[in-house]
Nucleic acid binder design. Structure first.
Length: 111
DNA sequence: AAAAAGATAGACG
DNA sequence: CGTCTATCTTTTT
């Protein structure tokens, strides 16, 4: 937190997030691949430092297995609860396990 | 400059 | 089901 600006990597992540349609969710792996990186952790780092909270749909990014993961830097349980609420309002389908239905709400980047 | 952490994913036992 | 390793970027010492 030294510069007001952000890295090019984060900017690319936020750009991809804007491509995710409402009611859908993308996975870290797919996002990382769309950015040209094979490490979903790098994407998570960019989202964690997300300077635009609700402006960027960072809550539309979940794990590969449908688990929510985290939100900003909150506790795991709190992050899941908040994300589930937001996604549920957007029309994302949730399974009884508390996971997202990637089979219907899973989004993937073209190309 | 070097080391540690971080919202993952995949492989192994 | 639980544990370890691989991979990339950002942040801190």
């Amino acid at each position: 937190m030294s510069d007001d600006k952000i890295s090019v990597f984060a900017a690319g992540v936020y750009r991809k997030l804007g491509e995710i349609p409402r009611g859908k969710v993308a996975t870290y792996g797919v996002l990382a691949r769309a950015l040209g990186c094979g490490s979903p952790r790098a994407v998570g780092q960019a989202l964690r430092a997300n300077p635009h909270a609700p402006q960027v749909p960072c809550h539309r990014v979940v794990r590969i297995d449908g688990s929510l993961g985290g939100y900003q830097g909150e506790e795991r349980g709190a992050a899941i609860q908040r994300k589930q609420q937001l996604l549920r309002e957007e029309g994302v389908i949730f399974l009884k396990d508390g996971r997202v239905d990637l089979a219907s709400s899973g989004f993937e980047f073209p190309g």
